[in-house]
Simulated scan of single mutants.
Amino acid sequence: MRHVVWRMLPIVLGGALLLIALLSSPPVMVGAMPPLNITETSTAEPPTRTPTNTPVVPPTNTPTNTPVVPPTNTPTNTPVVPPTNTPVVPPTSTPVIPPTDTPTPAVPPDSPGARPDLVLNKSVSPAVARVGDQVVYTLTLSNAGGAPAVDVTIDDPLPAFLRLIDASASSGAAQIAGNRVTVVVPVVAPGEVVTITIRAEVVAEPLPPDNRNVAVARSGTTEITTDNNTSSATVLPPVPDLTLAKSVSPAVARIGDQVVYTLTIGNIGGAPATDITLTDTLPSSLRLLGVTTTAGTASASGNQVTVAAPSLAPGETIVVQVTAQVVAPLVAPNNVNTASVRTSDREITTDNNASSVTLGSPPVSLPQTAGNPVRPFLSLIGLALVIIGLGTLLQRRSYR
Rank of each mutant, 00 (worst) to 15 (best):
P272H: 08
A273F: 11
T274I: 15
D275T: 09
D275P: 03
I276F: 06
T277D: 08
L278P: 02
T279N: 15
T281C: 01
T281L: 03
L282C: 11
L282D: 06
S285L: 13
S285C: 13
S285P: 05
L286A: 01
L286W: 01
L289Y: 02
G290L: 04
G290V: 08
T292R: 00
T294A: 02
A298M: 13
S299Y: 03
S299C: 10
N303I: 01
V305K: 00
V307M: 06
A308G: 00
P310G: 11
A313G: 13
P314L: 08
G315Q: 12
E316W: 03
I318F: 07
I318A: 08
I318D: 14
I318K: 11
V319G: 01
V319Y: 05
Q321F: 00
V322Y: 02
T323F: 08
A324K: 10
A324H: 09
Q325P: 05
Q325F: 04
V327W: 15
A328P: 04
L330D: 07
V331C: 01
P333V: 14
N335D: 13
N335F: 04
N335L: 04
N337W: 13
N337F: 01
A339T: 03
S340R: 11
V341W: 06
R342V: 15
R342Y: 11
S344H: 14
D345S: 12
D345T: 12
R346M: 04
N353M: 01
N353Q: 11
A354V: 07
